[in-house]
């Protein structure tokens, strides 16, 4: 009993380790004899063997590479199906896996482009987060923020399939309810600017958080220019 259990465990382990080739080998050699044509012996035709790997068990080759980053270190933990583990850390840290065995290497800009150029080109641009500020008790942008807003609106137009999420905020001067409405008015003001410049209204979402999420913590009833803002997220 215990012996057959051991046998089972080890054969399972073997199949797991070298999986596919063992299995296909077993299927080919342990299966019933293949039927042979009566005239096989008398034909003089050439016997051709396929040189491509069996489609039943395609050999999978995998490559992983950390892309270069500014000021940060890319780290990827790799846990192979075989149980081996490795860590890819830093720009161009890479590994190639053939038949379940990983070989680490260090790539470069050229090998990155050659191997992954298409998928890197397909990456969408990073989402943008920009705050714009308003005058006290108003939905009019401050002069400085006007320029920021215009630049941002242009960036929206340059994007493919843009979505804009506009969140209005206020300082704590005035009642909560009043500020909820003021925040919404500020968000709507930005929305109207965006529509005017040609952004599809259906891609703009507005909301107000009123005075609930100040950038600078103040007591109630405090005028604070940094808190009178709309946060614009372009996606």
């Amino acid at each position: 009993m215990s012996r057959s259990a051991t046998l089972l465990t080890s054969s399972l382990l073997l199949t797991t380790l070298s999986g596919c080739s063992i299995y296909s080998g077993a299927v080919n050699s342990l299966g019933p004899d293949k039927p042979v044509s009566d005239i096989a012996a008398t034909t003089e035709g050439e016997v051709l063997l396929s040189t491509t790997p069996p489609p039943f068990c395609p050999a999978v080759v995998e490559t992983y590479m950390v892309m270069p980053e500014d000021g940060r270190t890319g780290i990827v933990d790799v846990a192979l199906v075989s149980g081996d583990q490795l860590v890819l850390e830093g720009d161009y840290a890479a590994a190639e896996v053939v038949g379940g065995v990983a070989t680490p290497f260090t790539g470069d800009a050229d090998s990155l482009r050659e191997t992954f150029g298409d998928s890197i080109s397909a990456l969408p641009p990073a989402p943008i987060y920009v705050p714009v500020y308003f005058y006290f008790d108003s939905d009019i942008l401050t002069e400085e923020s006007m320029a920021d807003a215009q630049r941002l609106y242009q960036a929206v137009l340059e994007r493919a399939a843009p979505e804009v999420i506009v969140t209005g905020h206020t300082d704590t001067s005035g009642s909560k309810a009043f500020n909820q409405t003021l925040g919404q008015r500020r968000a709507e003001a930005v929305r109207e600017d965006l529509i005017e410049i040609g952004v599809d209204p259906q891609t703009i979402t507005t909301r107000s958080l009123g005075e609930t999420q100040p950038v600078i913590e103040t007591g109630d009833g405090v005028r604070e220019p940094k808190n009178r803002r709309v946060e614009i997220n372009v996606r």
Partner: peptide, 22 residues
């Protein structure tokens, strides 16, 4: 997750290629 491994991302940019012999 690829046929050969599970990659856990700790930070932040990387690429993966899975090439089938077919």
């Amino acid at each position: 997750r690829t046929p050969a491994a599970i990659l856990a991302v700790r930070g932040t940019e990387f690429s993966v290629k899975v090439a089938n012999s077919l």
